[in-house]
Amino acid sequence: MNILKIRGMPAALTAFAGLIIIFIVFGMIDPVVFRTANIQNLLRGMAIYLLIGIGQSFVLITGNIDLSIGSVVGMSAMVSATLMSRGVPVIPAMLITLACCLLVGVLNGLLVGRAKLPPFIATLGTMFMARGVAIMVNGNRNTGLISGETGISSESATTFRNFFYFGSTFGLFNTFWIAMVIFAVFFFILSKTRSGRHIYAIGSNVDAAKLSGVNVGATITKAYMVSAFCAFVVGLVRVAMTGMGFMEAGNMYEMFAVAAAVIGGISPMGGTGILLGTLAGASVWQTLENGLNMIGAQVGIQRLLIGAIVPLAVLIGVTFRRDSSIKLISKWFVPSNKN
């Protein structure tokens, strides 16, 4: 089967092509970019954008949006770090945190899928609520070190931090591998399972899906739960990185997630895009950030250039699509009197 015929593949490949060009250009400016250590760092950074991007992609494909991702990352970091810094062992702390995060996902799903609120409004609300919890949970302060006086033992803290951030396997950081495993699982779910199919169907034509017997509310809730789960993992990564919980962790991540998804060809209108695109989009985003850092660009110019990529990528995508839609429309409307 022709690989280009796979839906969403052309957009994903375009983003990968862009990624390679960007990578090579930066490497030519400063060869340090090509060094193994940098590539290792780059992949670890990319993993974070990929994770939040996967979550946002699930929601975007249903034709909705999740603005609460960044706050759920913050909540995950603060809840888990608070628990661990008070001596709750790693595994129970993680499970409690997971439950809290999934609760936000379920709430989003109920508000958008059942109560039919506009997703922008519903998740704006949960965005503030989750951030509020993140700030409240340790009494309006960042946590101390998770291996502090009252915290977990320094051995288990080290294990936790190595598992999520500092350790590496086969020469690459664990964070990258965790993201890859999660990517593989959700890639499979989205492309090969009934739930995945329903996610596309709802984003494509919610009425048709409903009339075909698809449970729209439940499917949308599933998508928001995937998003919350991914944010949960990123929150843990943040705690592993710093060894403590910051109240502002994950700030703006929901927007980075939209950017990664959209660069990779996931349409915010729903119904199209594949996770491979999100992988490409997250890589483009991180490579730009990394490359600009390496050549010593200031934060302001970094944001400006990276920001320009988002509309540019979509413009390229729209131009591709426009051609085919013009063909399609002319097929519909031009009477075929040729014979």
């Binding site: 399972t193 739930s195 995945g196 199919r197 596309y200 048709a208 899906a209 075909s212 199209t272």
Partner: peptide, 24 residues
């Protein structure tokens, strides 16, 4: 009432997909 992003077969079986477990 079609999902225009899905294929013909996917539309025909929408809502009553043939699956093994949950896998299409």
């Amino acid at each position: 009432n079609m999902c225009r992003h899905l294929t013909v077969a996917e539309n025909i079986f929408l809502g009553r997909e043939k699956t093994r477990g949950d896998i299409l």
